[in-house]
Computed example of a mutant assay.
Amino acid sequence: MVSKEIADHIRSWRLIVLMSLIVLTFVTAMYVSLSNIGAATGNLSDPDHTFLYLKLLTATDKVVPPFHVFISFLGPLLGISLGFDAVNREQSSGTLARIMAQPVYRDNLLLSKFVSAGLVVTVFFTSLILLMVGGGLFFTGVRMEPQEALRIFAFTAFSILYVAFWLALSIHLSVRFRQAATAALTAIGIWIFLTVFYQLLIKLLVRAILPANPEILPSEQLIWYENMILNLLRIAPGQLYTDATTTLLIPSVRSLGPVTMEEMAGAVPAPLPFRESLMIIWPQVSGLLAATTVCFAWTYYLFMRREIRS
């Protein structure tokens, strides 16, 4: 069943179009990064200037954003396109009842939908990252350090998890709504709300709570407000992805929240070890993993209790 679903995804025109778009943005971002890699690695004041392969994913000319910014925008569309009609398409075409008439468990059908799309996304992102590493080695001739390899493949794994969340959400909507168009529009609406309007609502809430002149507040209270704003923003999966990828690809990032002058006293700007960066982003990783698991478990519950008629 998984191989059949993978074959259907590969032959799908919408997947081909979206993958072509992501490959195009990848090539554009890599071209801009290679064009600016000399300035990025030659800046001795930058504590991360020795990480050449990480600079390939973060260097920019201030016009074209880096690749991980493109993924934060296009990744949800990829996940939604792979799952919005996973179940309701089978039901509208009449094949769902015939499949269930065979000796096939319902959970196997649902798992095959999720696993097949997840494997397609995994192979796709892994191929892009290997292409980036090979291109960097070909054009620069600089070998990759183990620290860079760990961070790049952790970035790839988190990108796959980010797309998997939107895949699980779209499959859930495919089970809940009988029309594929309704499921697609609802998923895109949720994505637009969490990406654009949610941040606007948080900003309006902050403007209503904070005084007109926030500088009059004590530093402890101001830090408490900033932490509260960040925690509210991190409800959105896009913010979790941005926090995690920024920490992984920029090793000198030491904190994802406000830092007082007392905490900064004596700190030497230097890249953190991979383990320390992973500890910083562990709440983001566990939060996105928990959201994906809860969403798929809810889908599983609804699908197992659903009545299927021919």
Rank of each mutant, 00 (worst) to 15 (best):
V2C: 14
M19L: 12
G75L: 03
I216L: 08
I152S: 15
Y241C: 05
G42Q: 07
N231Y: 05
V63W: 08
A208D: 12
P273E: 15
Q91K: 08
L233P: 03
F67Y: 06
A164S: 12
L230A: 10
I99T: 09
I80Q: 15
L200V: 15
R306V: 03
V206A: 15
T299M: 10
A101C: 01
T126W: 05
M30Q: 12
L278T: 08
L167T: 11
T260P: 00
H49R: 08
G42Y: 03
D46I: 00
F158D: 06
L150M: 12
E262I: 03
F177W: 12
V87L: 14
T156L: 04
L240P: 03
Q221E: 14
I129K: 01
S81L: 09
R306H: 05
G83N: 01
R234L: 04
R178F: 11
L248S: 07
P146Y: 00
V285P: 03
F114Y: 05
G83L: 06
G136W: 00
L232A: 08
Q199S: 13
W13L: 13
F125E: 04
F139D: 10
L24N: 08
Y301L: 09
L185H: 05
A39K: 00
A86N: 09
V69R: 02
L240N: 05
G189F: 05
K203I: 07
R207H: 07
A184H: 12
F124Y: 05
S93P: 03
V63E: 14
V285Q: 02
V123W: 01
L204M: 11
A117M: 03
V268K: 05
P65C: 13
L78V: 11
D85Q: 08
F114K: 04
A59R: 01
R234D: 10
F274T: 14
A291V: 04
A208C: 09
G38M: 02
F73C: 15
L15F: 06
Y31P: 09
E5R: 04
P214H: 06
Y225F: 14
L249E: 06
P269K: 02
L137F: 09
P258A: 14
A168C: 13
K113H: 11
L54E: 07
L248K: 04
A149D: 00
S174A: 02
N43W: 00
S170W: 00
R254F: 06
L96T: 07
H9K: 11
R275C: 08
F158Q: 11
